[in-house]
Design a protein around this nucleic acid. Structure first.
Length: 108
DNA sequence: TTGTTGACTCTGA
DNA sequence: CTCAGAGCCAACA
């Protein structure tokens, strides 16, 4: 029988991102390990997210606690604004405190 | 089928 | 602390 993907890796990532509550964030590497893939795959998955979806992609940042620069352009500025609107606090250099805002999926 | 690209992460200096 | 290079996996042509 043909090999069919049990669950599209992208779909897996989207489901995890949706489990992130407002006011918290996560990193690409964290999601990548949870889905069993590398961080790049996560970033690529979010990049492939269609507009108008209900996935809080803005809550996904890099391990540096900073918003990643997107090839689209001002996307990073929008993400910064959305996070601030959710009550997150950025320090100098537009960096977030991952030790304080990083969401733990195991915590549930 | 292979090769290139991409919103990353890690290690070393 | 910052900067640079290498590794990584999945999707697209």
């Amino acid at each position: 029988m043909s090999q069919q993907t049990p669950t599209p890796i992208y779909q897996r990532i989207y489901l995890l991102v949706r489990q992130i509550p407002a006011g918290y964030v996560t990193t690409y590497g964290q999601l990548g390990r949870l889905v069993g893939c590398s961080a790049r795959t996560v970033g690529f998955a979010l990049a492939a997210l269609p507009p108008g979806n209900d996935t809080p992609w803005q809550r996904v940042i890099n391990s540096k606690g900073q918003v990643s620069t997107r090839t689209d352009g001002e996307g990073n500025i929008l993400q910064y604004d959305l996070l601030v609107a959710e009550g997150l606090h950025f320090d100098a250099g537009q960096r977030l405190d991952l030790q304080r805002y990083q969401w733990n999926f195991l915590r549930c």
